[in-house]
Simulated assay, not measured.
Amino acid sequence: MTSDIDLHVGKRLRRRRRLLGLTQQALAEQVGIRFQQIQKYECGANRVSAARLFELSEALSVPVQYFYEGLSERDPFGSEDPTNIASDVLSKKETMDLVRAYYAMGEGPRKHLLDLAKSLDPGTKPTLRLVAP
């Protein structure tokens, strides 16, 4: 039976793997298992053992605690804080593509893009600066 914790660990595993641009196959090869096992971990169908979690944390360059981050902040009644980003958003391919493109830019363009994005949010004060060409 899949537990909420198994699902959470699987989502964190998928998010980190995608952020690093790894395929399930590539990650599986690093830890010496088949890609189908990674699929099962990510969807929560199989529970990740302590030893395997350690190997995955090494392969993904994160501490073991990474997989449990966010568990203690969960609301047991299911209500969501609108100031928090939904975990679904961070696991989408589009989000990962955007993050990769953002960090592929130089520091100057990144700052301008961030200022632009902030200026489009009605809840924040605009900090957009006009720069002469």
Results as ranks from 00 to 15, higher is better:
Ser72Tyr: 04
Asp121Thr: 09
Tyr103Lys: 09
Ser119Val: 12
Leu130Lys: 09
Asp4Ile: 03
Lys11Ser: 09
Ile85Asn: 05
Met1Gly: 03
Gly108Asn: 03
Glu42Leu: 12
Met96Pro: 03
Ile85Lys: 00
Ala45Leu: 13
Gly21Val: 10
Leu71Cys: 05
Gly44Trp: 02
His8Phe: 13
Tyr102His: 05
Asn84Ile: 13
Tyr66Asn: 01
Lys11Val: 14
Asp97Ile: 14
Thr83Lys: 04
Arg17Pro: 02
Ser79Met: 12
Arg74Leu: 11
Glu80Ala: 15
Leu7Cys: 09
Leu130Phe: 12
Glu55Pro: 03
Val131Cys: 12
Lys93Gly: 11
Lys118Cys: 13
Pro133Thr: 12
Val9Phe: 00
Arg14Tyr: 03
Ala45Ser: 11
Asp81Arg: 00
Val64Phe: 10
Tyr68Lys: 00
Asp88Gly: 01
Lys118Ala: 13
Asp81Pro: 02
Gln65Leu: 15
Ser72Trp: 03
Val131Leu: 14
Val64Asp: 04
Tyr68Glu: 10
Leu120Asn: 07
Leu20Thr: 05
Leu128Gln: 05
Asn46Cys: 07
Asp97Gln: 09
Pro63Ile: 08
Phe77Met: 11
Leu13Asn: 05
Val64His: 07
Lys11Met: 14
Ala28Thr: 04
Asp75Ser: 07
Gln65Cys: 10
Met105Ala: 14
Asp121Asn: 07
Gly44Thr: 01
Tyr66Ala: 06
Leu27Ile: 10
Ala132Tyr: 06
Pro109Ser: 08
Ser3Gln: 04
